[in-house]
């Protein structure tokens, strides 16, 4: 069976009058297996959206090769697009239509039934708002409607371009549940995001992009394991003597100040047990390495998501 997506050495350069030459995509290759939840993570301007648009078939690369479900996205073919579901960054809606009319129009384009359209509205939790005009929906509701439109054709492969950007934390968590459910139904999901915790929470594998290149591809856990970074354990200062702190650190780094003591340890279990028996758990915070540390490590730059 073909991979869901195969991308080889994509390149795309924009020539702007003011900006000069910008290499938006500079030799990108990756492969997404069927059923995978694949993330493309990078700061704004890393080339995520351009890469996605090339893969979807909206833009033609200057060079490179794309295979979607074993076929080229060019030229436009109804047989291929029928199997894709797409959610774009902008909420692309027909003006002045209600949520129901909107999704029913998309359903007709994909040859799906009205029942399916209603079911999708239900799935994304918009059944109560079916009669509301799209422009009157909140940002989160619009994103969910947009995802419902992407799903209405029962696609094998779903593209989601920064679906949670500009949403409040609660709306973002709700969308995460929805995206997990989509993937759990056996659909391949490709997600771009500039939220570290989002990629970490959802993706089977993540491609880290920066300046038009894929810097590394791995699972979030794999990235962190390879990073081999110490766990940072913070407690409020004044609970332990300096001698005891030095003893507990046993040669590893300790920093302090601002009313806290911070241990960096590779054996957090032992340290935490000792702190507990000392009764020195006030202000305790444990922070393991996350994708932010990975990004710093992979790109050599601080995350500025």
């Amino acid at each position: 069976m073909d991979a869901a997506i195969e991308v080889a050495d994509l390149r795309k350069t924009y020539r702007g009058r003011r900006t000069g030459e910008v290499r938006a995509v500079d030799g990108v290759s990756f492969r997404v297996e069927r059923g995978e939840f694949f993330g493309i993570l990078g700061p704004n301007g890393a080339g995520k959206t351009t890469t996605l648009e090339i893969v979807e078939g909206l833009r033609r690369p200057d060079s490179g090769e794309v295979r979607l479900l074993g076929r080229s996205p060019w030229p436009h073919s109804p047989d291929l697009t029928r199997r894709l579901g797409v959610q774009l960054q902008a909420s692309a809606f027909f003006e002045f239509l209600t949520a129901r009319e909107q999704i029913e129009t998309f359903a007709e384009l994909y040859g799906a039934t009205k029942a399916r359209a209603a079911e999708m509205l239900e799935t994304v939790g918009l059944a109560e708002h079916a009669a509301v005009r799209c422009e009157k929906l909140s940002g989160g509701q619009q994103q969910r409607l947009s995802i419902a439109c992407a799903l209405v054709g029962d696609p094998e492969l779903v593209f989601l371009d920064e679906p949670t950007a500009a949403l409040d934390p609660q709306a973002r968590r709700n969308l995460w549940d929805l995206m997990r459910a989509i993937n759990a139904e056996g659909r391949t999901v490709v997600l771009t995001t500039h939220y570290m915790e989002e990629a970490e929470a959802l993706c089977d594998r993540v491609a880290i992009m920066d300046a038009g290149r894929v810097k590394a591809v791995d699972s979030p856990a794999g990235f962190i394991r390879k990073l081999d970074a110490p766990t940072r354990v913070t407690i409020a200062s004044g609970q332990l003597t300096d001698e005891r702190i030095a003893e507990l650190a046993s040669g590893e780094t300790v920093t302090g100040g601002d009313g806290t003591v911070v241990f960096e340890t590779r054996d957090p279990r032992k340290l935490l047990t000792a702190l507990a028996s000392d009764g020195a758990l006030e202000g305790l915070a444990v922070r393991t390495a996350n994708l932010e540390d990975v990004f710093l490590h992979v790109t050599g730059r601080e995350w500025r998501g």
């Binding site: 436009h76 697009t81 902008a90 692309a92 003006e95």
Partner: peptide, 19 residues
């Protein structure tokens, strides 16, 4: 100009319907 803003045409290009 609306299409440039809300990308409706771009979205529709990715449906089975042709431009």
């Amino acid at each position: 100009v609306d299409w440039k803003r809300d990308k409706l045409l771009r979205r529709l290009r990715l449906t089975p319907a042709s431009v």
